[in-house]
Design a protein around this nucleic acid. Sequence first.
DNA 1: TGACATAAACTCACATCGAGAATAAGTCAT
DNA 2: ATGACTTATTCTCGATGTGAGTTTATGTCA
Lengths: 294, 294
Amino acid sequence: MPENLAYAELIAVLVAVTDNEPRVMTIGAGEALPSGPFETSHRSLQSGLRAWIESQTGHPVGYLEQLYTFADRDRATEAASAAPHTRHISIGYLGLVREQAALGAGRPEWHSWYEYFPWEDHRERRPELLNHITERLLVWAGEDVTRRQRVEFLFGLNGLLWNEDLVLQRYEMIYEAQLEKEPGFGRQMAGDHRRILATGITRLRAKIKYYPVVFELMPDSFTLLDLQRMTEALAGLRLHKSNFRRQVDQQNLIEETGEMSSETGGRPAKLFRYRPAILEASALSGARLPYSRH
Amino acid sequence: MPENLAYAELIAVLVAVTDNEPRVMTIGAGEALPSGPFETSHRSLQSGLRAWIESQTGHPVGYLEQLYTFADRDRATEAASAAPHTRHISIGYLGLVREQAALGAGRPEWHSWYEYFPWEDHRERRPELLNHITERLLVWAGEDVTRRQRVEFLFGLNGLLWNEDLVLQRYEMIYEAQLEKEPGFGRQMAGDHRRILATGITRLRAKIKYYPVVFELMPDSFTLLDLQRMTEALAGLRLHKSNFRRQVDQQNLIEETGEMSSETGGRPAKLFRYRPAILEASALSGARLPYSRH
DNA sequence: TGACATAAACTCACATCGAGAATAAGTCAT
DNA sequence: ATGACTTATTCTCGATGTGAGTTTATGTCA
C-alpha cells in the first residue's frame, strides 16, 4: 500500500515568557518554527519530541501538548518531499518552557509572538494598525453581509467585544483575503508556520482559562502581580487586579511561601508557590450543562 | 530521509443518535472503528475523509473535526506495517451524522457507545458495575495515596461529583491497571480503537457545552424535550428541565417554527428549528478571565 | 516628613444558577 | 362529560459568581 506512505515531521510551537513578552522559538532568523524528524526510537511522539527539544534549548519542557496534524496539499511547506505523489504530514505540538535560553545545540532564537501577530496585543491599547486591517478586510468583504458580520465579530467592531481567543480565525480570514503578505499585517514565516503558530496561541489562550498551565511558565516563587502579568502577556489583555486575585485564590492552586518580595516601589508583596497536589480535584470552572443533582 | 517515512491512515469516530442512544459506526461486527487510506487526491485530509464517509454511510457528514494523531509504538494497531522499522500513524477524526443508515457500500453497523463504556451512562442511575470497577481500581491503587485520590476523583467517590467529561481519563486508568480486558469492563475493540473512541466521546461531551454541535445531530424541527434528550444521551446524564430550557433560549440559537408536535401523551409541545445565522456572535459562555473593561 | 507606589481586603449592584412550585393543555379510561 | 395522568411552559427564590471600584496597609524615595 504505497499510497499510505507519507513523510512525517514534528513541528513545535515552543513558548517562553520573559520580561512580560511571550516568545516563540524559531530557526532561520525568525523565519520558521523548529521542526524535527519523526524519531522511531522513542516510545511515543511525545517523548521523542521532548528529548529533542531539551537537546535544542538546554531546558526541560514543562508542558507538551499535541496541537494539530497538518496535511493540506495547497498549504504544505515547499521543502522536502522529493517524490511528487508522496504526502507531507506535519504534526504540530505546543510546548511551554520556563526559561528562554540561548544555550543548546541549535542556538535557538526567540521572538515575541506579537511580531507575527501585532494586532493581537491589546495590553496597552487597541493597536492602531487594527484600523488599517479592518478597513482592508471590509473592502474585501464588499457587499457580502455574512463576511462583514464576521469581520465585525472577529475584530470587535461596532460595540462587539474583542475576543482574545480568536487568533486563528482572525489569521485565517486575513489569509483568505490574501492580505497576509501585505505590510502592516505582521511578520511572515515559511510555509504554513504562521498558521501553526496561530493555532498554538489560540490553544494556549483558551487553555489558561480552564487549566492551570500558566504555572508551567512561572518561576518557583512569584507574587500575585507576577502571575497576573504572565496571564496578561499570554491573553494580550489587561485584567482587573482584585478580581484576578479573587479568582486565583478561589481556585486554591497556590500557597504562600512565607517570604516577601523586595521589588519595584510600593508595599512588599507576599510570595506564592504553585501546589500541583490536588490539581485535578479543582478541575475548575468551565462551561456547564444545567445539571440535575438530586 | 527514509526514517521520516510512515504509514498513515485515517480513523473515524462517527456518531449518530437514534432512539436516545448514541451510536458509533463500526466494522467487523463492532470490533473496530472504520479506517481508510490516506487519499492523495483530495485537497485536505478533511475533504478526503468526508467523501469517503459519505460513500460508506450514504449520508452527508454534518460536522467533522480532527481528534488526535496516534503513534505510540506500544499501543499501535497490530495490523499492516509489514516493514518493522516503519511507523504507523493514525489520524483520528470525530464526525457527526444526522441519521443512522444501513446503506452505503461498506454496510456499516452501528453500536451504542455505552456497549464499550457501560459505566459512562448515568441517565437512569449510577451504573451498578461501577462498584465492581472502583473496587478493583482501589485494590490496584493499594497504598498509593495519589492513585487512590485519582480514582476517587475520576469516578466520583466519597462525595465527589461524577464528571461526565473524564471519559478518556477513566479509560486510561483502567488500561493502566490492566483491567480493560476483564469481564464487566465493557466491550473490547481491536488495537487502540477503544481509546480513540474514548477520545471522541470526551471531545464531544466537552464540546456540547460551549459550541452548538448538538444541532448537527437533530432533525430539522424538534421539541425542547427532544433537544434535552439528545444532550442527555451524549452527556450520559439527566438534566434539569426548566433550567435546560432557560439556558437554551438565553443562547438564542433556536426559533419557533410555528408548528406543534403531536407526540407522546401530554400537552403538545412547540416545535423549534436551529438558526445558524448569528451562530458565531453568540460564542457562548465558557470559562472567563477577570476582564477589565473600561 | 510627606509624596508616591503597590498590596491586600472589602463593598455593592447585578447576573447566573440550582431547585422546585405553579399553572396550562393535551390524552385516555370510565 | 369527568377525572386521572402526562408533558409543556412559566415563575419564584435563595445561593453563588462577576464586574467595578473603594478603602486601608506598608513599603521606598526625595
